[in-house]
Design a binder for these strands. Structure first.
Lengths: 223, 223
DNA sequence: GGGCGTCGGTGAGAAAAGTCACAGACAGCG
DNA sequence: CGCTGTCTGTGACTTTTCTCACCGACGCCC
């Protein structure tokens, strides 16, 4: 159970949700729960049933596809101010989660049960279009991801990752491999080749982008 | 411009849309357009801007990712009674299409412009939850597709395709390759190997499932 | 300084997929 | 019947990715 003012304050801080009206919030606030988790906590596993709709206040959720062999691939991240779209999908469709959700950073969220979620959707146009927008972005992103995984080579995928996530990435090769759905050795070798081409500089648990223009070029049509 | 009764009849024939109320339809009907296209027509190309929301009455839309090298991969199909979810995403997000949409079969659809779509969403809870349900299913399907493409071998992907699409598939190897995002030669060889294992029977432009139990087994953990 | 756990490098080999080139088979049609 | 376009089979080779095995390097803690 969450204080209405608190929920309101939380929602108000989120882009696009500032104007959810008071009446709509009553029911949701009464039913909502505050959730706090430490980094690394698992929110859901593939096959789990979905019980509530969550709005992330701080920290992130990394949504990861798992292979039978234990390999991983990050599908997307839920940022503060967003809701987990798989959760919406699974709630509405009654399907089990198709992926794992892992907490990154100090995590706080508000969990709203299905009934209250429906009520919010029905009563607040702002809330509604916020949810639509989230799902829209996710859908298009996933379609792009499918293309990249199906058609892109690993150097291109890594180039894209490096360009997207800042000029400096403090991740081990194993962690990078889990981002892109590959294995440590391969990532090591590909990174080494990128370094040989003068595109990045490597250090223990760190990749630094040196030639971002070159990386962008590689990202598109490798030649 | 579409007659209100006609639009109503069209919507009424669709699962989950039977009860969209009359008032909500007025605006939509006035703005809606009837679309008829022949099989093979291209609805949209990657990069195109999205102009209207379409509900498919008959025929299907095949949504396809394209690689720089000209390879293809079917992301999903929009069946009669469904709406194209990329279209919703692109409309709401203002993003260009990330894929190609191709008509299959004799195609009829009702196209509703963005404003009228928004009005329908706002005024009809039934319409709303129908759209949510569509997007939910798509999202989960796409996540599964990412996993399959990233972790599955081609024989598994083909096995899944054969199991999903009836005991008999009348497609050329090139068409099968375009379904799964591979090339003709590879598909030919994999199919031959499936035939050697007694799982399918091949003929010109035809694949027949012989041992569906075996195919299911292959589909999961190839051993 | 010694020990330990994490991290990265590397070699050897195999498997999977893609590429190129061409040949033969089949269907439909004039 | 022969022609033509589509469809499939196949050999030979390359590229990409994966797997296994092992080792050395680094950081940290006692």
């Amino acid at each position: 159970m969450v204080d209405e003012g608190e929920l309101r304050a939380a929602l108000a801080s989120l882009a696009g949700l500032a104007r959810v009206d008071l009446g709509s919030l009553r029911g949701a606030a009464a039913a909502a729960q505050r959730i706090t988790l430490a980094s690394g906590a698992v929110l859901f596993e593939p096959g789990d049933a979905c019980r509530a709709f969550g709005i992330v206040l701080s920290g992130r959720v990394r949504v990861v596809a798992l292979s039978a062999a234990g390999r991983e691939l990050v599908l997307y991240r839920v940022q503060p101010g967003e809701a987990c779209t798989v959760t919406v999908s699974c709630l509405l469709g009654g399907t089990p989660y198709p992926a794992r959700g892992v907490v990154e950073g100090a995590f706080e969220a508000v969990a709203v049960p299905l009934a209250a979620f429906r009520h919010l959707v029905d009563s607040s146009p702002d809330f509604r279009s916020w949810v639509f927008a989230l799902m829209s972005v996710r859908l298009v992103d996933l379609m792009r991801l499918v293309s990249e995984v199906a058609f892109g080579k690993l150097d291109q995928r890594l180039a894209a990752l490096l360009l997207d996530r800042g000029p400096r990435l403090a991740l081990s090769h194993q962690e990078l491999a889990s981002e892109v759905g590959s294995t440590r050795e391969i990532v090591s070798r590909v990174l080494e080749s990128l370094q040989d081409q003068g595109l990045v500089r490597l250090a223990r648990r760190q990749v630094e982008v040196v030639d971002s223009a070159g990386l962008s070029q590689l990202r598109r049509g490798a030649y």
